[in-house]
Nucleic acid binder design. Structure first.
Lengths: 231, 231
DNA sequence: GTAATAGTGTCTATCAGACACTATTCA
DNA sequence: TGAATAGTGTCTGATAGACACTATTAC
């Protein structure tokens, strides 16, 4: 039988990230341009190897990659899954452990270096990126987008695409852009109030040439609330 | 920077399975008793290494492990996630790619061999197994149980715990045992009819000393239907 | 005042769940 | 006929969503 000590039997493992933010035109993903073979010059999900003597666990490795690319420390973070087969990387049987992160675009400072020659935001089409991606990253990104779009339907997850303080109208606009349909203001606010995951910031208002709007913030960082379901 | 060719930088990767079935007393999981160190003699989730020159992809590796342990070929199958850190396996930084499978207990013939000295069904408590498990398998199993229990609320997944032919009353009983609460017969049948994922087997009835019950089967194998949600 | 958006109240068509009823078999 | 479970019908209280209304600012 096989053994873990037969090193050539070990697959290659990378940690890759689908980092999402919301731009005026819709959802965007952060991509890195590859500087080395394979797929040199192609765009790919930012990622890296596990540093076995530095990373305590998988999530720490993913957080390290995120920090190196964006300078962001603690956004919403979720494992999407593992993708692995013999053919996705020409260097051999490989795994990609994929996480997705949601951040407010304003919070990000793009970093350069490593074996990527640049990083940039790219729009998400109906499914995945609008440009070809290295490895099987188009399929991986598609899985992450699908997960995100599904969760918009029944969780408070989209709040993580907004900056710390936001109005209810801004929150509703995020849902509407992700869902691709308009929501009723009254019904939306009832639903949000029901699950009780945000709180007004006393005295803080968003001002414009109209009635000022109350600013809100998340109640506890990193908690995702589910709306009610059935059966 | 690191490289995948530095073999000592590669974590160990195993594929582990949470195989669930329903017994008269409730949900059970198939565990294997370890024959070798580490954790020799302890019970663990059945698993194995990736055979890089045999397994086409991760799911194929998982299916191979399942086939070797149970003789079952094509049950319901779903990736639960990856669990990885420096400490979970004394042999080094390791990953467990975990799948869960749902099967009808009658379909299984337990296999022996490999580095496991035996395999047996064990009850699931409120959370995880009622006995201590090797590695971090108690936590992994808990994640799988949580996933399963959640999905019972809004999917047709429990049907995979029944044999090919079943009655609506039997299906309702599965939901009730997994949910731990009784369901209304009329409402349950409306819901099931709505999502249209099973079909009557013409003329086939379950007979007892009462009115016979129509037998049903899945419409297409391996499709999981979601009940409707909101926002 | 007007324009613009924030925020709340009301009304109704729908429907999930409670419950009762009928149907069909065995003994 | 009675016991047991299958399967269907009905009624009602709750509520999601449509829509209209009031509130508060800048100009």
């Amino acid at each position: 039988m096989n053994s873990p000590d037969d090193l050539h039997q070990r697959p290659i493992v990378s940690v890759d990230l689908a980092i999402f933010a919301l731009a005026p035109d819709g959802l965007e993903v952060l991509l890195a341009q590859r500087g080395a073979e394979p797929f040199a010059g192609s765009w790919a999900l930012p990622g890296g190897w596990i540093h076995v003597d530095e990373d305590r666990d998988l999530e720490a490795a993913a957080q390290r990659v995120l920090r190196d690319k964006t300078g962001v420390a603690a956004p919403y973070f979720e494992q999407v899954g593992v993708f692995g087969d013999a053919a996705r990387d020409p260097r051999g049987w490989s795994l990609s452990v994929t996480y997705m992160a949601l951040i407010a675009k304003e919070a990000v400072t793009l970093m350069h270096g490593g074996n990527a020659t640049g990083a940039a935001w790219h729009p998400i089409g109906s499914d995945t990126a609008t440009i070809p991606l290295a490895f099987d990253h188009a399929a991986i990104l598609k899985a992450a987008v699908t997960r995100l779009r599904n969760k918009v339907e029944y969780t408070t997850l989209p709040v993580h695409l907004l900056p710390e303080a936001f109005t209810l109208s801004e929150l509703q606009a995020v849902y509407e852009r992700l869902l691709g349909r308009l929501l009723d203001k009254s019904a939306f606010r009832k639903r949000i109030a029901e699950v009780d995951f945000i709180e007004p910031i006393a005295g803080e208002m968003r001002r414009a040439s109209n009635r000022p709007a109350q600013l809100y913030r998340l109640k506890q960082a990193r908690s995702t609330v589910f709306f009610d379901r059935t059966i």
